[in-house]
Amino acid sequence: MQTLTDEELIQAAQTGHTEGFTLLVRRYEQRLFRSMTRISGSPEDAEDICQEAFTRAWRAISKFRGESQFYSWVFRIALNLLRSSKRQLKASVSLDAVRDAIGDDLEDQRADVDPSHSLQVRDQQRVVQAAMDAMEESFRTVLVLTDLEEMSYEEIARVVDCPVGTVRSRIHRARQEFRGRMERLLRQEQRAC
């Protein structure tokens, strides 16, 4: 059985073969979910957004002209949904809450061999997500697109609808801000200890 390309599946879906769309959904749902979780900070919200994004994509699949990748298109739909969602406003995680949740385990960032490594990784990720949540959504988005999705700047520019140069500078500023927030968070954690 050959592997169908996105274009073939889109064409099938556009002509009413819903199994084509099904395959597209299956192909990208986890990927989109992961990115949306990063951006929204909530897997639950991300799940809702992804589901709705795919639903909308299905409804509008006939209008998809293939000028961008299918995933970029769906991602943009999801991003718009996220932006319009009121829940986005609540996505920010209280640093105190993060601190309470993290406890004292963050000092050792090199606990690769520690038996409680997985737990610490989760705690570390909470800090990472807290730093992400504290950033502007546009910064979170470009960071996710470039670091998680590994999209090219050109693709990112299409998704976020801005010039490539803007994407480049935005990514740079997002990284700098992310770095600063991470450092502040970790310092706070150390002081709390």
Partner: peptide, 11 residues
Amino acid sequence: QKSLLKDDAIL
């Protein structure tokens, strides 16, 4: 930072 963001532990 890239590796941190790629980590799926948040999920």
